[in-house]
Nucleic acid binder design. Structure first.
Length: 425
RNA sequence: GGAGAAGUAGCGAAGUGGUCGUAACGCGCCGCACUCGAAAUGCGGUUGUCCGCAAGGGCACGUGGGUUCGAAUCCCACCUUCUCCGCCA
């Protein structure tokens, strides 16, 4: 959410930002509503002030034995017009709030303007895509052939876009989760959190999934709860409606969670394999930082996520997302994209974003720079560190052997009982 | 799921229809004094937010409604926490 005062003071800047995103939102209408609101507010507050001062005098007058009935009559009328105006005010404020909730973040000046993912800008590459001297397979075939990914059972038990991991596959998934968390807690100093996988509506609004993207989320029947699309939601909302004390920033959390996404509008895309599931595992990094440091923190966040791919020796590249791929809440976003032989391209495995104060303003997260100073909004950032299912896919494809087996990356072996290779039984 | 109790400043807590919510009192925190320094003591300060250039004003006692000239206080609904019972991994 943008600051209404900022919009009021910089309407052209906001319009430019929206134009870069091809968003058509009537900012003039918003400013007009804001003006209406403020004049109505001034008016009703004057009436309330009168109400208060008269109310204060009534006990005195009563004590003096004066007749207060005429004053009651007058005040009743006053009270009625206050109620009426409060009602109008509430309507205007609701409309303003709706608009503010639907305005995306303004892209950072360094973000390239673009129309499609083709306009994203590769920043750096790491590792070389492997040259195969045999007919390599896609991960869904590798997984099926090794008996470690069971699509058929998941289809029967639940439906499309779900899978069973079996045997060494299940162990691999579990090992990756532990490996990721260990690297981030031990090497990068993140505090581990294990969050609830369901949250209520306010939390989803706080991080920006709602109200605009309700069709992307799974809502739990008979409750007001939503299945989380990412651990970002519960973890960021830990600090909702809070003023953080001086000295506690930066706060860094790493959280494993299952993630649930309806994938509305993605029918027919990536239907095979682990790339686009309704449920997947992810280890998420979330940072709460002072505004002055947030862009430096974004760079280290990306580095923290990259470290995992380097340890696993998976070739990847880092891309800066253009305005078309930025997402609603981000001011700037880097994707880590891992080389996926079956796609013959790099595939997103982590998104790292700086939201600046966009989420903090929605979720009311502030900090006090020093004792006695005024509270300010913090900046929030998060990034995948990494998506687990996609990592399994990348390992299966990049580490496959001519005989159909898959070598386990060395760094991972301590987490999977020293297993060196997954072979067909 | 059933019964009961409770939600007021960073924490504890007073206030049960008005003239103390810039919210008693206590703790904590900040400053000053005393001290070589510290402790103790004393004095002062210490919520957030909105409108406004300012002066000033509005709002907030878990949340949302209602009653009333006036609500922390009365009524209704909901949320959360605690205790007991039931059930359960």
């Amino acid at each position: 959410m943008l600051d209404l005062k900022f919009i009021r003071a910089n309407p052209e800047l906001v319009k430019e930002g929206l134009a870069k995103r091809k968003e058509d939102i009537n900012i003039d209408r918003l400013i007009e509503l804001d003006e209406k609101r403020r004049s109505l507010l001034t008016e009703v507050e004057q009436l309330k002030s009168k109400q208060n001062s008269v109310s204060k005098d009534i006990p005195k007058l009563k004590k003096e034995g004066k007749d207060v009935q005429p004053i009651f009559e007058e005040m009743r009328l006053l009270s009625e017009s206050v109620k009426l105006m409060d009602g109008q005010l509430k309507e205007i404020e609701a409309e303003i709030q709706d608009m503010l909730y639907s305005i995306p973040n303004i892209p950072h000046p360094s973000v390239p303007v673009g129309d499609t993912d083709e306009d994203n800008v590769p920043v750096r590459h790491w590792g070389e895509p492997r040259k195969f001297d045999f007919d390599f397979k896609a991960h869904w075939d590798i997984g099926t052939d090794l008996g470690i990914l069971d699509w058929a059972s998941a289809g029967k038990v639940t439906g499309a876009r779900f899978t069973f991991y079996r045997g060494a596959g299940a162990a691999l998934e579990r090992a990756l989760i532990n490996f990721f968390i260990d690297v981030h807690t031990k090497e990068h100093n993140y505090e581990e959190v294990f969050p609830p996988f369901m949250v209520h509506r306010n939390s989803m609004v706080g991080t920006g999934q709602l109200p605009k993207f309700e069709e992307d989320a799974f809502k739990v029947h008979n409750t007001e709860y939503f299945l989380i699309p990412t651990a970002e939601v519960p973890v960021t909302n830990i600090y909702r409606e809070q003023i953080l004390e001086p000295g506690v920033l930066p706060i860094k959390h790493v959280a494993y969670s299952a993630c649930f996404r309806a994938e509305a509008g993605s029918a027919g895309r990536d239907t095979r394999g682990l790339i686009r599931q309704h449920q997947f595992n992810k280890v998420e990094l979330v940072k709460f930082v002072e505004p002055e440091t947030s862009y430096d923190e974004l760079e280290t966040l990306v580095n923290d996520a990259e470290r995992i791919l380097q340890l696993l020796n998976l070739p990847y590249r880092v891309s800066m997302m253009c305005t078309a791929d930025l997402g609603f809440t981000a001011a700037k976003k880097y994707d880590l994209e891992v080389w996926m032989p079956s796609y013959n391209r790099y595939v997103e495995i982590s998104s790292c974003s700086n939201f600046e104060d966009f989420q903090a303003r929605r979720a009311e997260i502030k900090y006090r720079p020093a004792i006695g100073e005024k509270a300010r909004y913090i900046h929030t950032l998060n990034g995948s560190g990494l998506a687990v299912g996609r990592t399994v896919a990348a390992i299966l494809e990049n580490y496959q052997q001519a005989d159909g087996s898959v070598v386990i990356p060395e760094a991972l072996r301590p987490y999977i009982n020293g297993l060196e290779k997954i072979e067909k039984k």
